[in-house]
Design a binder for these strands. Structure first.
Length: 376
DNA sequence: TTTCCATGAGAAT
DNA sequence: TTCTCCTGGAAAT
């Protein structure tokens, strides 16, 4: 049940584990078997996340080095444009070279892209050798160290959290689980309906229940990306006046309800049902208000809030929208979700700001929550 | 054991 | 608008 923040996070993790590495690809479930065969033994040369879409580029081993070299050249150009490599290194976690979004990948014919969209209930599951201190070098992504902590087996990585430059995998490795201390790491058996498994010597990633799982060309990848709107998690998005302006224009050009517009992936890429509810609440905007009946200032403020919430979601690894100053203490009995969300899943309970009962109705066949007093 | 539900989205009606 | 696809955990029976 991922929104854009989770996809970007997954892409970064995937990049850290596999970029530059030759991998085995298989389909334990069988439904992706013939396609998996086409990338089995290939090298992961790029990972991208745009909105809720993730793209992974595979190249045959003989070609991977030249592809990666070309990619580094593009990256150097990009760094020069930004006037500093530090600026690139400081970019948020979004997988690899951002510049690839605006330019076709080099050596197009030598590449295949894996396109994954998790839909409503797809998920990734990762496991890795806890002794892996030196994650395979990645293109344009910060180096990360593995720090394994105690926990139960097979917990989803979505609960992992980042801290400075280190990636902490919580609950990912079973404490006390029999592992050969001195020997090789072994991948856990697939659990459930694993459509695709990507495996290296030190890490494994399993996809379950994706809405889309396909191999596409670079051209197709560009077409798919071109249909997506403003992604608040693209590098520098929250500071990018052009993207902010574009979002404002897209919203104000339509008379559909803004609650529909910000879930429209061609307008705001990555926003899902929780961010919709929470951002509109913080912006004080009724989800039913038509896009063309909002001022530039209000839509701009909405964009800023979306960026704030999703960036925090990416950083902490879950969608917790309550700002520190609004955090109830203690959390009211029987209303635990108030510890996380202002509005989402809180219909029939009092608004944290004004006490009005929170409303609920279906919009685009999804449950929509709002405060009829605070939002107008 | 069965039913319901979920942080999607495209196609069909 | 409604249907359809993809899966698994929680809730209801």
């Amino acid at each position: 049940m991922p929104e854009g923040d989770a996809i970007h996070r997954i892409a970064h993790t995937f990049s850290s584990l596999f970029e530059g590495t030759q991998v085995q690809a298989s389909s334990p479930q069988g439904r992706f078997a013939s396609s998996a065969q086409l990338i089995d033994g290939h090298v992961v040369v790029a990972v991208r996340a745009v909105g809720k879409h993730m793209f992974v580029a595979f190249a045959a081993p003989g070609l991977a080095t030249s592809v990666i070299e070309q990619a580094r050249e593009i990256e150097a150009e990009y760094a020069a444009r930004l006037n500093s490599a530090e600026a690139v290194a400081a970019l948020p976690f979004t997988g690899s070279s951002p510049v690839w979004g605006e330019r076709a990948f080099p050596s197009e014919e030598s590449l295949q892209w894996l396109h994954i969209h998790l839909g409503l209930y797809g998920s990734w599951r990762f496991d890795a050798d806890e002794r892996t201190q030196d994650v395979p070098a990645s293109i344009g992504a910060p180096r990360t160290n593995w720090v394994a902590t105690k926990g139960h087996r097979h917990a989803a990585l979505k609960w992992a959290s980042y801290s400075e430059d280190s990636l902490y995998i919580e609950d990912n490795l079973a404490a006390g689980e029999a592992r050969d201390i001195a020997g090789q790491w072994q991948a856990p058996e697939p659990v459930g309906q694993v459509r695709l498994r990507i495996l290296s010597d030190v890490a494994v990633a399993d996809v379950t229940g994706p809405n889309r799982c396909e191999l596409i060309s670079d051209e197709q990848r560009l077409v798919t990306e071109s249909k997506l709107g403003c992604d608040p998690l693209q590098p520098g998005a929250s500071q990018d006046p052009a993207m902010r302006k574009r979002f404002i224009e897209l919203v104000r050009a339509r008379k559909r309800p803004v609650g529909e517009l910000i879930m429209d992936q061609s307008i705001a890429a990555g926003v899902g049902n929780i961010y919709r509810a929470e951002a509109l609440f913080l912006a004080g905007i009724s989800p039913m208000r038509a896009g063309n009946r909002l001022s530039k200032a209000r839509v701009g403020q909405l964009w800023d809030i979306i960026c704030e919430l999703m960036t925090r979601g990416l950083e902490i690894g879950r969608i917790d929208t309550i700002r520190p100053e609004d955090q109830p203490d203690p959390i009211p009995e029987g209303d635990e979700e108030l510890g996380r969300w202002y509005i989402y899943h809180r219909s029939g309970r009092p608004c944290i700001k004004c006490g009005t009962m929170i409303s609920e109705k279906l919009m685009q066949n999804r449950r929509l929550f709002w405060c009829s007093n605070c939002q107008n």
